[in-house]
Design a binder for these strands. Sequence first.
DNA 1: ATCATAACGCTTTTT
DNA 2: GCGTTATGAT
Length: 811
Amino acid sequence: MMPLEQRFVAARKSAIAAEYNHLNPMQKEGVLCTEGPLLLLAGAGSGKTTVLIHRIANLLRFGRGSDSEELTMPINEDAIELLEQYAENPQPENRPLMEYLCAVEPARPWEVLAITFTNKAANELKERLTRMIGEEAARDVWASTFHSACVRILRRDIDKIGLSKDFTIYDTDDAKHLIKDCLKELSLEEKSFPPREMLSVISNAKDAMMSPQEYAKRADSMGDWRKQRISKVYSLYNRKLWDANALDFDDIILHTVRLLQSSPETLAYYQRKFRYVLIDEYQDTNHLQYLLAHLLAGGYENICVVGDDDQSIYRFRGANIENILGFEKDYRRARTIRLEQNYRSTQHILDAANAVIRNNQGRKGKTLWTNNGAGDVVTLKTCFNESDEANFIVGQIMMNYHRGANWKDHAVLYRMNAQSNALEYAFKRNGVPYKIFGGMKFFDRAEVKDMLAYLCVINNPADDLRLRRIINVPARKIGQASVDKAQVIATEEGASLFDVVKKATQYPELKSASVKMESFAAMIAEMQEALDGADLIDYYGLVCEKTGYTAMLQEKDDMESRGRLENVEELASSIHAFLENDPENPTLAGFLDEVALYTDLDDSSDSDNCVVMMTVHSAKGLEFPQVFVCGMEEGVFPGNRAMSEDEEMEEERRLCYVAMTRAKEKLTMTNARQRMLFGRTTPNMPSRFLKEIPDGCMEWLSKPEPRPERHWSDDYSDFGSFSYTGSIDVSYESRKPREKPKLESVRKASPASQELPNLQPGQSVQHSAFGKGMVLSVRPMGGDALIEVAFDGIGTKKLMLKAAIDHLKLI
DNA sequence: ATCATAACGCTTTTT
DNA sequence: GCGTTATGAT
């Protein structure tokens, strides 16, 4: 290349780079490396999404301008000088000319595919993209989850592999029901063939692209009786899916891969279309997703995978960490960029986290650092038991609150949902507002599922599973036995259950139920007709009414039914939200698609000021100023199952690393010497992960030994920084469940036997944390009382009077 | 058909 | 220890 051209190419890259001067050098590199395979190892809090967004924006503005020596026009000194100057000191008025000079085949929005794992991530990507490049361009970028991208592809071309385009999607719950049906039909015991396990075996088989026939063959050749049975389940399960014209979540990916593998035109179409492919959270991909990514990116091989091997925590659901560890082997010309500067946490927190994760073998290796300063040391705290632990955490949080912190600046993380009970109790007693994530989700509620089932049946009458769910809800005198009979007939005739129900009176064995069945079918048919051209919201109202579902709830008229009615109505707002979002397919079928893949439309509540509690898994990707990780004990975190297997232990360690790196300012980790879990109290050693944290970045507070008890007398000697005062804390003396008198003495130790005011419903009160409110109810409980107070602008809180009394004033 | 009692079993979770 | 589920009784 001529020197002039070399100078131009260099100046071009510098000028483009100048557009990203607010990024650090590694981030910039990630944005500018547009061509060929790229592995972006993005540590926790390293600004990964920022890089992703800017990278896409860069592709759309400059194409391969920053990563190619290609010239698009004759060049001269002036052009070079302008770019060199721009790189030195970017002037906005020169930007249009600079863009013109630097762009090399800028990507068009629809040529960019950005895949994420969750809808939340996809939406965040779309939002930030919209803000940066404008709505028009952002709309055409394919930013979606694996599953929605695949559904989009399948809706277009699935008929090429012999399936119908109007397939239904079965979620895990549906799949489980289907498995149960299969087991019943094969007369297999659920005890020896747990549906959960069946589902996971089938999922693994699909991930390995093993058909039921292949699975059966393998089972036969091994002579494994159980596997042979499972192969029957797998086979029947798949047949039922086929009959219902349904795909489960694995099928969505599997069939897309099969489609791309078997239809050269389809493959060529997408490979030509997607000039740039980006995969987020690559460490979480399973084998099928890995294949899919490679197929889609196989044309230009401009594949950029982003992820963090140290945050791979979904092995149990098929994630294969080898995908990210082996990326450089898959693509010999791959470039690797490490983002190790952390913008989230203090150095002490990072030192602790780095020290823990360093003990893993299977990793690429990264060391996070920050400019944020050393900050507070990590606090480790050993508590007596889980309620002591919960009280400690609540106490710390209340202390912070009184110093001006927000409740929502605090997060309590745990390994298992079961651990949340003790915490919840402590928060409730102290009147601290909290929110537990990971409970029942909106779309998991029975009433919501019922209404969706109605819509599904209307949309696809062959959906036996959903039909059976709602055929007698509300009660229509169509009993289980009659439905079973009709199902048998349907199977014999090779028809769908709905077909039989429709002409039920032709089958004498259905007896009196047959009339009810036919009128049910008539109702569904009537609604199918009404669908044509109707407004979806109105239509939903019609379905609620015609099915008698709302009437059923209105009649019951108790607290529960009211809530359920609200949820049924709330589904209308989901439909509304769906339509607002200007979907490409604003029909009932389109809505059902979205709902099937989109389970958290309703998590709109980061607005309320609450302490949040969740599992470490659900905390991934989030951050909080104050983080408490509790249950740091051998057998809990790491969990018992990890003890025997190295791979599992490494996953637990990664999980611990994820937990620690959620903290921005202060990290506190607690362990309890004994914990009641699943109804049994067991003594637990402090987690090995705590031992891995170096002295320099932590302090270890500890309750004094309550009493030289059998299981706790020794074994702490190898904990260098463990200190014992040797004195006995009387208030914690043997709080064993059976020793009633002692328990009473503990109660007394808390601010107790003071005079309780005679509160009446209707009384106005002032609370130091929640402000003004009105007492709704007072329920005496022991020597205490549970009061319910409606606080202005906050909502209703339940408080234990004794605990809340110091914060309450009558007004 | 609907309610009651007993028995089980139990990481983590998204699509 | 608790919530879910299966089975049996009315």
